[in-house]
Nucleic acid binder design. Sequence first.
RNA 1: UCCUCAGUAGCUCAGCGGUAGAGCGGGUGGCUGUUAACCACUAGGUCGUUGGUUCGAACCCAACCUGAGGAGCCA
Length: 455
Amino acid sequence: MSRMPVSQVLNCETAPAEPILVQGWVRTRRDSKAFSFVEINDGSCLANLQIIADQGIPGYEDVLQLRTGASVSITGNLVESQGKQKWELQATSVEMLGNAEEDFPLQKKGHSMEFLRSIAHLRPRSNLFGAVFRVRSRMAYAIHQFFQDKGFVYVHTPIITASDCEGAGEMFRVTTLDGEELDTAPEKDFFGKPSYLTVSGQLEGETFACALSNIYTFGPTFRAENSHTSRHASEFWMVEPEMAFCDLQGDMDLAEEMVKYLVTDALEHCREDLQFFNSFIDKGLIERLQFVSERSFERVSYTEAVELLENSGEKFEYPVEYGLNLQSEHERWLTEEHFKCPVTVYNYPATVKPFYMRRNDDDKTVAAMDLLVPGIGEIVGGSQREERLDVLRENLKHHDLSEEDYWWYVDLRKYGTVKHAGFGLGFERLLMFVTGVANIRDVIPFPRTPGSADF
RNA sequence: UCCUCAGUAGCUCAGCGGUAGAGCGGGUGGCUGUUAACCACUAGGUCGUUGGUUCGAACCCAACCUGAGGAGCCA
């Protein structure tokens, strides 16, 4: 007899004629004089399956020993429940595969998120984290579906790199050297020069876009920034599409379409889990997601955004002034207070953006864009890339970067250059937005943050 | 890196100068088609660490450690 997932059991229209086999972990047990209720969960869905184990069935002596967390294998007949759930399993035999010791840390009561992080190996067995990681899996699938349906080619850009995607932050060094040689003899290192974990696959992505036209990457990314916030992790996953023959308009269109597609997909395929988030961690979640999936996003230029902020009458801690970067509080005001929906801000001053962004005709701004969402802020950052060889060379110089280090990147502009554009979407930030979970550490299985790389 | 807050039982917290507490979880017994079940009993603590103040410190002070929130940076 093969195991039937709990999700499938609970979705039965009519009770199967034959006995079925279910396997999972005990969530709770309640004893009566002549029988016990055991609820099991196997992660296939949020809901538990209630088991009725009568005194006298094979394994009943084990049932009385079962603690929360134990693993069990149960055969029985599916019957309509006398209680509030539709189905329950009338057990014909119960086998305890492995009991949980008395100090199993996950209780039936609510735990703090901080405590659950300290038991990251067990937290997927909780309702909340089971739901988070089912949604994470579904969203990863939907990302591939979105791009594959559009004919984008999935490219695996390198994890180890010797090139710095300037402006993307501090890098982790990868080395086989130790002691002094680290600094004095980098040429003796494994790759013959200093190498690092990637902070972005964009530059490599551009080379493939300039061959296969539309590509995307989806993989881990590493930043050695000493950030202590609820939306930064040292290791996270990023989606980076890159499109040839595409300008900033097309780039913004794609980013908005993608966020909308993913939200709609979650509403359609993760309903039970979203309902759970809506009830327990974010009361307005489903309403907000529905709003996002139905309405169009707002779009303002940086210049317009600065004007809105200046005329807002708000007292901001940091000044609003043309030429300065928008602060978190400014972004929050735009998306949460003013527009109350996702907003794309575009055409930023060149002075606050990296060398590869395309300079606009006004000579002051670059064709950059950030997609901001309520509650999180920046979820997408992207730009049209500078495709003009002379302008790119000038930009490298302005940013004190040597053309030699970027020779292959510059080559793209020498041999059949085309306008092209792309963006990066923080996968965990998307998950925070879709689930309502407030901390990035709680949407990634084993979070890495400064001072913490357990498990 | 900066600013703020918090570390008391396995978990969530109360106690805020004078003998260390509750609920949940664990153990034992009882009761019941129960569903964060219920009732009784019971075990469980160098009060983050190190110094200091005091007759006396979980409580006041200092430093450090850990965690969280925010800023910057970004996704």
